[in-house]
């Protein structure tokens, strides 16, 4: 029997495989397929203070080994979540983590304060890396000063586990990671999507209504892996790795590069069972290599 349980500050996970925000709805959509209690955690769809319609259609373009999206944080706002969605999902036996968004620091704080009152939400993921909104989002995550400020203010408003989700659209992601660590982040998750673009050459038009969008999928995996490697060596807090993870082998690579846990995102669009297959695959890998604890793989790259 191998141990897959990991701890991220006070957040205890039965296994290190989470579903990434924006790729698993509120858990209910996956519960149509299987028992979501098997998941390590569910990162809920990005939530803002007020209702957001998101960006106009088209919001998606398939690209080589991946896709671009420009959803733009469509959600009904934190109050709607608390009144209508939270009561339906709160009894899942897996940690539910709210992905907190804002266009101003005040909005981040207000959403965080509301979430802080919810018993069944043991952690938040502070999203300072959404590339698809005009205000806030990634702007907070692309300079050390603004990343520090928003992390500091949210930290004051939140007593449970605080994860900060980092943008890869920066010159030095390790520097941003150190900045949020210094302001009290308990963990960093990376990477969010890469800013990208797709064009219909025949029609000479962009494929996304917003012209640019976020690139995800296996196309970004080598870059994401490199960033997890750099960040895990730069900070002491646990790193949650993501970016193009399609199977257990991909996941293992992220652990070896220094991730304590991983998130599965775009792969879910292709097959919602991917996270469960990865959990089984991790167990197989540990057995095959006679390793009794997933924690022993974290940063265990030989070089």
């Amino acid at each position: 029997m191998v141990n897959l349980a990991v701890k991220i500050k006070d957040l205890e996970l039965k296994n290190p495989v989470m579903t990434a925000s924006g790729t698993s709805g509120f858990g209910e959509e996956l519960a149509d397929f299987y028992d979501v209690d098997k998941l390590g955690a569910i990162l809920l769809k990005g939530t803002t203070l007020r209702n957001r319609d998101g960006n106009p259609y088209p919001r998606m373009a398939e690209t080589a080994s991946g896709m671009l999206n420009a959803v733009g944080l469509q959600n009904k706002g934190i109050d709607y979540f608390i009144e209508n969605i939270y009561p339906r999902i709160k009894d899942y036996n897996t940690p539910l983590i709210v992905n907190v968004n804002g266009s101003t620091i005040e909005e981040y704080i207000e959403v965080t304060q509301r979430v802080n009152e919810l018993d069944k939400i043991p952690a938040i993921e502070l999203n300072i890396s959404c590339p698809n909104v005009k205000e806030g989002g990634m702007l907070f995550g692309t300079s050390c000063a603004s990343a520090e400020t928003v992390t500091r203010e949210v930290r004051k408003a939140y007593s449970k586990t605080l994860i900060v989700k980092l943008s890869p659209n920066v010159t030095d992601i390790a520097e941003i990671a150190r900045a949020v660590e210094s302001e009290g982040a308990d963990s960093v998750s990376l990477v969010n999507t890469f800013l990208g673009m797709a064009i219909d050459a025949e029609k000479r038009i962009p494929l996304l209504s917003t012209i640019t969008g976020g690139l995800s999928g296996p196309a970004i995996k080598p870059i994401a892996l490199r960033m997890v490697w750099q960040v895990s060596r730069a900070v002491k807090i646990p790193v949650i790795g993501m970016g193009g993870i399609m199977n257990a082998t991909d996941a293992i690579e992220f652990f070896l590069a220094g991730a304590t846990a991983i998130q599965v995102g775009t792969a879910i669009f292709r097959d919602p069972f991917t996270p469960l297959q990865i959990i089984d695959g991790l167990e197989d890998y540990l057995n095959r290599h006679q390793i009794d604890d997933i924690c022993k793989l974290v940063g265990a790259l030989k070089y």
Binding site: R59, M60, V71
Partner: peptide
């Protein structure tokens, strides 16, 4: 659409 089951929010 990408997912087909309501999580990607692309086919709105």
């Amino acid at each position: 659409m990408a997912c087909g089951f309501g999580v990607c929010l692309c086919c709105i």
